[in-house]
Each structure stands twice: as C-alpha cells, then as structure tokens.
Design a protein around this nucleic acid. Structure first.
Length: 579
RNA sequence: GCGUCCGUAGCUCAGCUGGAUAGAGCAACGGCCUUCUAAGCCGUGGGUCAUAGGUUCGAGUCCUAUCGGGCGCGCCA
C-alpha cells in the first residue's frame, strides 16, 4: 500500500475535473504536524497561480470533487490553500489486516521489474579492507536487498581491484618470499598491509627491484604463466580476507559476484581501437585521449579523458568503458548503479559521456554513480590513526563486538554464555552498520569510535530492543503463529503507529530511487520510536485490558515486529528474541 | 585558477518534487521501575539554518556574490 501514490492519483483526477492540466504537480506530502492531518495536498497553491485564481477557492473546488469518501475522515482547507487530509481509522485498520497476512507486508507488486547491475564494495586486493570500504560495501548491499525485495532482477558485481601497476611489485616480492620457503597464508600474507609496505620499501630502496616489478606487470598483463601463477596465489589469499569481512558484516556478496578489473582485460584493446578508428579518441602527447567539450572550462578547453597510456598501457578508465559495454550490451541491463566515494565523480561523468558517444551504453540503460563523502577524523581532517595508517575494518568490527559483549553481560543476566556471544555479535555489528548507514551526506563525515559503538538513542540496538519487547509479549501471551484479530485504532498512539506502518512502501520506493538507505534507517527509527510510545501508553497483557483490545494491540505489535525484522534485514542487521 | 560537494542546537546528524511554529540522538537538567525487558518512557533548556542580496503568496531547500572547509582537474585507482 502506497498511500501517497493513492492520494496523488485521486488528486490528479480531481485536478483534471476542475480543468487543470494532467501534469499539474499534486504536491502530496506526509503532514508535518498532527494538527494538519495525516497527509497534505499542496498543489492547489501553485496551480492557482497558473490559472490566476484565488488559491483557497481552487482548493475548495478540488475538495468538492475529490473522491476520498471511503479513505478520509476529514478534508480541511487551511492557510493560503493547503488541503489537509485525515484518514479514517477503519480504512487504516483494513489496510493493516491485509499487510499482516501478506508475505510482502503490504508492499504492492512490482509490475515493471528491471534488471539492475549494482557495483559495490570493490576493495583493492593489494591492501586490506579499512574503514573507508565500509560505506560502499554496506550501502550497496542495502540497496541490493531493497531492490530484490521489491522484485527487480539484481546482478551484484564486486569490481575488485586486482590489475593495477602495483601488482608487479607485489608478485616480485611474493616470489622472493616463496623462494625463501615462507608459508603463504599464515606468514607471508597474514597481514596484507605489512606485505604491501615491505614491497613498497624494496621498490623505493632496493637496486633492481623496481625494474623487475615493472617487468612483471608487463609479463602479467601479457599472460606470462609464471607471473600469472604468483598473481593468482596473491589474489586468492586476498579474496579470502575480503570474504571473511563480508561474512562478519553480514553482507550478501559472495564468490560468484566477483567481477574484477582483470576480467575486462580482453575487451580493452578492441574498444580502444574502435574509439580511435572512429575519431572519438585522438593521440595527444603520446597518449590516446578523448576530449570532452561537454566538460570544457570557461575558456573552452575540453576535459581530457585518457584511455591508453604512452607505451600502450590501459587504465581504469579503459576498464570502466569495457564494464559499460559488458553490462549494457551483454547483460542487457536497464540500470547500472555504482557506489564509490565522491572523489571519482568526474571520472564517472567522463565514462558515461564517452560510453554514450561510442554506443558502449545503450540509451535505455540508466547509468548512476552514487557517490559518498570521505571519512574524516574527529579533528575534521582526513581520517588517520595516530600512527598515520588507517583503521582496519576487521579491527573496528572486533572492537564493536567486544564492547557490545561488555554491555550485554551487564544488562542481560538471564542469558547463557552462548546467547550472550550471539547477542553481542548482532548488537555490535548492527551498531556499526546502522551508524554508517543512517548518514545521508554525500559530503564528508566524521568517524568517531564512540558514535559508531554507541548502543543508546538512534542506534541499531534501539531497534533490536523494540523487537525483543514484542517478542517478549508474544511469548508471555502464548499465542500461535496463526493468531489473528481485528484491529481497533482508538488511542492516538495506535493510530499514529498504524499510519507509520503503512508508510513503509513510500520509504522503500525512495530508498530504491535515490539509492539512499539512510531513509530506511530514519523510517525504522521513527517506527520503533512510535512503538516505544505505544508500548508505554497502551498496555497489552496487563490487568483490566479488554480481550478485544488486547488482541488488537497484540496484532499491531506483531506487525511492527515483522516490519522491524524485515526493514533491518534489508539493512543486513539481525534481530533476536531476547537481549 | 576552474569544477564539485558542503556549512543547520555545545557535539554528531535528519530535514522527500520549495509549504504552515526547522527536528532527532548525544551531552546538561528534572521526573518515571513491587504490573508487558529502564539498551526504555515523559518533560525542560538550547537555533540570526555561514554572510549579503535576489526570485515568490511562501526559501534551510532555487539563483547570484562573498567567507570558510573537503575533494577533483593527462598518462594512479
């Protein structure tokens, strides 16, 4: 059920009846205050200007022909021409009855499913995942889950960085380690950061090593068996590190979703040749460049986009063009969504322009780069630890679980040791994910241990706690799965909660359209918050509650719990029966 | 220099196609556990929405300029 959409459709019909064009903006929104009803229609004011009539008079005309008799209780005109709509509790109750029985929790069917590629996480396999990788990984995963729940055909692609210049240096270093008889996983690559630093140091300091590294890159990309083998060893180990983090994070990325840079290698030369033959790319200072007039500066200097280096090497620009072709033409997708940090915004703008020009992207394929800001330290400067390095993602998650366990032990005296460990894991990981997912900013944001590992207020544990409260009531009530009752929405808290429940689809649509899971976080927090108010104000199993009212409130509680569990599941956060 | 994202309460952040008296959390202060889990609830204080203009019935939201910050701008990814 999408109430906003329903009201917009009804308003549009009314607008046509009073002689307004069909494309007039209805401007239906959720009301900001209870005095203004549940929804408000703001379109009359702008439309009146167009018709040069009195906005209040036009609002009255609209109200006269609006067909909302079975939906709304009250339709009022206020201020300069707002139309405030208050929904009927009976109607809300009917919608809720439908939602409870529905596996989709009342979310309507997807009548036009799309095929969507979502490109996210994309760790650099030369290094270990650090906190900066958190955003792309969990935002992308949340959007993927939302799209799948809605009913789109989603193709996950983990565009892992496994093909850069640095791999020459790494495999040369690895070769020497293996020759010295060092064990691969437990010693040589136990810490990717250390390994990278060692290799870099040799590259900078050791005579001959840099040349060997460069030689190895060429050999590797040319298909040399020895270098390929060393590279494969390195990649396999590094992928294992990433997959461990994914498991801990409860992210749905698996082995089959890896579509690394190297996979596009065979496509690069033909694409470059084609662009050159068609005059889209031209030689300049030894490199092959596409000049983009669309992104020219004020003096008219076009923006250069290098697709082949002097000497014939390819860049990630080339790889991204190949990815466009593969996704749009081979996978035939309707939509491509790419999650990377905002620093790459210009790059992806260029990729799209070139790809469209060259026909690598079909006109029917939407190309959306979804950027997010850089992580800053608490001093407002780009994030670094005291020692100058970054914080490893695995370390952050470990710390989260440790801190959560201390809290769980202090609060939940009835849980077994195993249950405590389980709850601590769900709370700790959930808190980190929610802290990051709930931020919208495409600009930079400040990383704080305490904020990320807080368990109070607008956090994942708050939502999980709301869920356990319902679970506890259901246990005490001793009701079965098939429990059913009619809903009575009498108290203000009950009606507000019911309305919030029915606004899930509106939120979901927005989340998918803008690729912004923070809207879902906000929604779930508001839902939980309203449930907490309802819980305090509307007793359920206490003495003196009428059976019909008790059952209605149980019903509402169960629906909220289902929605919380589903919503958190879309964010990749687990719930539990007790905490 | 040019481009881009941003500047909202002491701190961290919401604020949907421009809508009515700008909202949360944390921190501070005051209440609420012999009755459904106090990781909670209820309440109080806290704002020239960076600044100055403009557009209009209406601007935190759109436009222009200025100040302050992050990032990007030819062979890294």
């Amino acid at each position: 059920m999408n109430i906003k959409q329903l009201l917009a459709a009804k308003t549009q019909a009314a607008m046509i009846k009073v002689g307004l064009p069909a494309d007039t903006n209805t401007a239906v929104t959720q009301s900001t205050k209870v005095e203004f009803g549940d929804y408000q229609i703001n379109g009359a004011m702008a439309a009146a200007k167009l018709l040069k009539t009195n906005p209040r008079a036009l609002a009255q005309q609209l109200v006269d022909v609006l067909e909302l008799h079975d939906i709304a209780d009250k339709i009022e005109i206020a201020g300069p021409g707002f139309i405030n709509v208050t929904l009927k509790p009976d109607w809300l109750a009917t919608q809720l009855q439908h939602a409870v029985a529905d596996p989709r929790l009342g979310v309507s069917a997807n009548t036009t499913p799309q095929t969507v590629v979502v490109d996210y996480s994309a760790p650099n396999l030369a290094k270990e995942m650090h906190v900066g990788h958190l955003r792309s990984t969990i935002i992308g995963d949340a959007v993927v889950r939302a799209l799948e729940f809605w009913g789109d055909n989603v193709i996950r692609q983990n565009h892992m960085g496994d093909w850069g210049t640095q791999f020459g240096m790494l495999i040369a270093h690895l070769e020497d380690k293996l020759a010295a008889g060092v064990d691969l996983e437990t010693v040589a690559l136990a810490d990717l950061e250390d390994f990278y630093r060692e290799a870099k140091k040799r590259f900078d300091d050791e005579a001959g090593f840099a040349d060997k590294s460069r030689d190895y890159v060429v050999k590797l990309q040319g298909g040399d068996a020895h270098c390929q083998k060393l590279w494969q060893l390195f990649i396999d180990t590094s992928v294992k590190h990433s997959e461990e983090v994914y498991r801990t994070l409860n992210v749905t990325l698996g082995h089959d979703h890896i579509k690394p840079e190297s996979a596009y290698n065979p496509m690069l030369q033909p694409i470059v040749d084609d662009l050159k033959a068609r005059g889209i790319a031209v030689e300049d200072q030894g490199a092959l460049v596409v000049f983009l007039q669309e992104l020219a500066d004020k003096e008219g200097n076009p923006s250069p986009f290098i697709i082949q280096k002097t000497g014939g090497g390819f860049l990630y620009a080339t790889t991204d063009l190949a990815a466009c072709q593969y996704r749009s033409h081979e996978l035939n997708v309707d939509r491509i969504i790419i999650f990377t940090d905002a620093r790459q915004a210009l790059h992806f703008k260029q990729v799209e322009l070139v790809a469209r020009k060259a026909g690598l992207l079909r006109a029917e394929t939407a190309y959306e780069h979804c950027p997010f800001g850089t992580m800053m330290g608490e001093d407002g400067k780009p994030f670094k630890t005291r020692t100058g390095g970054t914080v490893k993602l695995a370390e952050l998650l470990e710390e989260a679980v440790v801190r959560a366990e201390a809290v769980v032990k202090g609060k939940s005296t009835e849980l077994s040791a195993e249950e405590i460990a389980e709850v601590a894991r769900k709370v700790g990981i959930g808190a980190v994910k929610f802290a990051d997912l709930s931020k919208n900013r495409t600009s930079d944001y400040i990383f704080s241990w305490d904020a990320m590992l807080s368990f109070e207020g607008a956090t994942a544990p708050y939502l999980q706690y709301a869920y356990t409260r319902v679970s506890s009531i259901v246990r005490r009530a001793g009701i079965s799965d098939s429990f059913s009752a009619s809903l009575i929405l009498a108290e203000q808290q009950e009606k507000q909660l019911a309305l919030k429940v029915l606004q899930f689809e509106e939120t979901l649509q927005q989340v998918m359209k803008d690729a912004q899971p923070n809207l879902l976080c906000n929604y779930l927090y508001e839902l939980a918050s309203q449930y907490m108010s309802f819980y305090e104000a509307c007793p359920i199993l206490k003495d003196g509650i009428e059976p019909a009212l008790r059952d209605s409130r149980l019903m509402l509680s169960i629906l909220v719990a289902k929605l919380l569990a589903k919503g958190l599941d879309l964010l990749g956060i687990d719930v539990m029966e007790r905490m």
